[in-house]
């Protein structure tokens, strides 16, 4: 059992329902800081749903309900993320998410990456372009797009879009990163590059990684969970 000062995310008795139909049943879990936790399991068991409970994204979906308690340690204190007084936009800036299917916005490549900064109200152009460049470099996309930053992001290939979405999640330097099969549309070699990136990110980020590739999970994850029959079981 890790000590509490190393715990980043504390999940207690989490239940989740779509249309009163339970998807997650009484899940309790502690996730240590600066680690990669892998979640595997059969399709349709609720892995993506589980990720959405950590940034409260499910609240934008109709007919959903949650029960239980989740706290995340930002700085020195644990924050109950479902606290009424806690700002959900702030939460989502600290808990970034990369979706299962790449979802570039219908904008230029540059604007996609700069979008979270714009939402936050950061208007410093020089600093902004510096951070966009940095995020694109960290996700190994910079060399491929540096000459076409003003082109439509939807014209990128599937794998490029996936890295674009990773860059977009990184631009705010989140403390927690939720990754839903981030290498599913990449070939082995590009997948390895992303894995290296995640390992690199471990020093300032806590990650939860949904993946179907067991060998990938074994390579990079510090602990592995399996989600099936609405339960989360620790594998190692």
């Amino acid at each position: 059992m890790p000590m509490t000062e190393n715990i980043k995310i504390n999940i207690k008795n989490l239940w989740f329902y779509y249309n009163d139909h339970p998807i997650l049943e009484d899940i309790s879990l502690e996730i240590p800081q600066n680690t990669i936790t892998a979640v595997t399991g059969p399709s349709g068991q609720g892995k993506s749903t589980f990720l959405m409970t950590l940034n409260r994204l499910w609240e934008s979906i109709e007919e959903t309900r949650i029960k239980g308690h989740i706290e995340i340690r930002f700085g020195s204190d644990f924050q109950n993320i479902y606290d009424k007084r806690y700002n959900v936009s702030d939460l989502r800036r600290q808990v970034g998410m990369v979706f299962q299917v790449p979802n570039p916005l219908p904008m230029s490549i540059y604007n996609n990456i700069a979008f979270p900064l714009k939402l936050k109200g950061e208007n410093n152009k020089t600093l902004g372009s510096f951070r966009v460049e940095d995020a694109l470099k960290r996700s190994f996309l910079w060399d491929e797009v540096k000459d076409r930053l003003n082109e439509d992001a939807r014209a990128l290939s599937g794998g490029q879009q996936q890295r674009l979405c990773i860059a977009r999640a990184l631009v705010l330097n989140p403390q927690v990163l939720l990754l839903d099969e981030p290498t599913s549309s990449l070939d082995d070699k590009s997948g390895r590059v992303i894995e290296d990136l995640l390992l690199e990110l471990k020093k300032d980020c806590t990650m939860i990684l949904v993946s179907h590739y067991l060998d990938q999970v074994k390579r990079i994850a510090d602990s592995g969970m399996v989600l099936s029959d609405r339960q989360m079981k620790q594998q190692w």
Partner: peptide, 14 residues
Amino acid sequence: PLSVRLTAPSLGAT
């Protein structure tokens, strides 16, 4: 589609 709907909120949009 839901994916379009959820993108901006996941990045901190009100």
